[in-house]
Design a binder for these strands. Sequence first.
DNA 1: CTGTTAGCGCATTCAT
DNA 2: ATGAATGCGCTAACAG
Lengths: 362, 362
Amino acid sequence: MSTTPQATPRRATITDVAREAGTGKTSISRYLNGEMSVLSPELRARIEAAIARLDYQPNQMARGLKRGRNRLIGMLLADLTNPYTVEVLQGVEAACHALGLMPLICHAANEVEMERRYLQLLTTYRVEGVIVNALGVREETLRPVGGGGIPAVLVDRSVDGLVTDMVGLDNRAAAELGTRHLLDNGFDDIWFVVQPFEQVSSRQLREAAFREAISAQGEQRGKRAARGHTLVLNLADADEVARGLAELDRAIDAAARALGAAGATSNAARIALFAANAPVALCLALHLKTRYGADWQARVALLSIDDPDWAELTGVTTIRQPTYEIGYRAVEFLHERIEGVQTAARDCLLPGELIVRASTLR
Amino acid sequence: MSTTPQATPRRATITDVAREAGTGKTSISRYLNGEMSVLSPELRARIEAAIARLDYQPNQMARGLKRGRNRLIGMLLADLTNPYTVEVLQGVEAACHALGLMPLICHAANEVEMERRYLQLLTTYRVEGVIVNALGVREETLRPVGGGGIPAVLVDRSVDGLVTDMVGLDNRAAAELGTRHLLDNGFDDIWFVVQPFEQVSSRQLREAAFREAISAQGEQRGKRAARGHTLVLNLADADEVARGLAELDRAIDAAARALGAAGATSNAARIALFAANAPVALCLALHLKTRYGADWQARVALLSIDDPDWAELTGVTTIRQPTYEIGYRAVEFLHERIEGVQTAARDCLLPGELIVRASTLR
DNA sequence: CTGTTAGCGCATTCAT
DNA sequence: ATGAATGCGCTAACAG
């Protein structure tokens, strides 16, 4: 027995099969494409045998070249580290499976340059469409896609000046849902923590909806209006993060002093943190744990959009996104475009689900 | 301004560029392949201009068809939900980037049938090699790869009867490291919890090394020998999980009774759980939390191979795998094979790193 | 029903 | 230094 992985032998081609079966390439091609009705049972059997004998597998590249379509779609991901992304991916894969598409997954790892490169690469591989969940999405880097280029659908964020379908969370409703939950539970000092808005529309929408919900609240309830703040945390920059967290710490301490031991059992004594997504929430939780110890939740309340597995483990209230469906719908939209559907650009906003855990209760 | 994403216009081909530049296709091809020395500066400039004007991008599929190589490699993943997988992927991507390869990522989502399907698909797309981290890996389903088929390298697990390179954690050393850590910290009732071995060699190795470390320990230390148990937990089957966890619960209760309040401050009073990987650890932690409340770590100690982000958050001791390097090395190996290296099959075992946190201390 | 022919977009001889 | 011709593996008219 050899212990050396041997070199690849040449694979059989359609010509080999034709010769082996004693027929022409056309018949083989017909067989491959399931046009059985036009093949005599006898020929069909011979072809079958020849294919089996040669272990023949049609070359998709060649087929694609000829047909002008290769059933490949690109899936551009900003950050696989974010559980949201993986979950969306599951939906994408399921839909692709169902529709006979093959997703080419590209992971930009939060690097704008990578995004550009992958987009270009996908183009040269002639993918039939692209699903984009990217970081530095601008009309400019997305030029090759959407409008003039190959069909595209955006996930979780839209891009100014780019006319494409898009599917994602109903950010306004979700942010409002979360804010209301906090208000209803008596928190009156709420901090919305979010990564830099940049081009990411979903972050802007969430923050805006948060502020609106805070404003609206005063009128509806008789009590003293709760205050809302926004903290921008650039997770990519350790220094900025440190500065932001320090600001938060001061606020937390101030609140504790103001209420004193008297209010210690009321949620009014705790500042509530509303994380715009899981990465932010994780950053906050880690910091709070090192600062206040394992019992940090007694000092600060945390609520997050996204529902990572550690949320259940640590009892953090979340707003779960319909991630699977988001991915599935994205592929469906894209598929329709690939098939030539010409309707106006669509927005598909799916609702989030509030999952109440101990972190926001008392 | 139109709000309808317009259909894809035909992309320029090499022929279009040739015509636009007033030359033959050959020169364009030469330009694309960087054979600048054979082109007059004048022609070169004209080609450059034509390419820019037409926004021409060479069709990789066609190039691949002609050359017989398309720079595509397959990356078969068993479970993207496992943070280990995502981390390995980062290394794979970096290496691919460096070596001019394009990874086709296939996610089997723990379904053996999916694996088969993807492997077949990769074959038809004529990828030049495959990196496999699959679940139901058997010599049989991997037939198209390795030995007789396209070059392959296995990640995290080897397969009997399949001669390929493989790279992964030094499982024996890691399991021993973890066991020793627990023994050294005074635990004398240790449960190794692992998913069904099936064909996954790494699970077998870890469990075996655990048992050996337990056996060896008695001789080396003067004290009473610690006991070791193995619990197999099939995460895919809720019922089996429930049964396994119930068994664990009984053991935990029994240990608590035996030691009584007297030993409550000693680690001997706590059972230690050694999770073979992160998914198992998460399952255990979730169960323990619901059973014993937020303070479950006072009752049970947990140690896990893999270092998911929630480990830091909950203070769980782990053995971190050199995931990035594993992925990187895998691609390097594969690249060498693709380039025709014929050395004997190699095993690359990388060491894990013990990260001590509160869960295993007192 | 079946085989022949002509490309798909590109790289590669081989001439010029 | 440049271009014409040939073929990669396959599909799609077009004949028989």
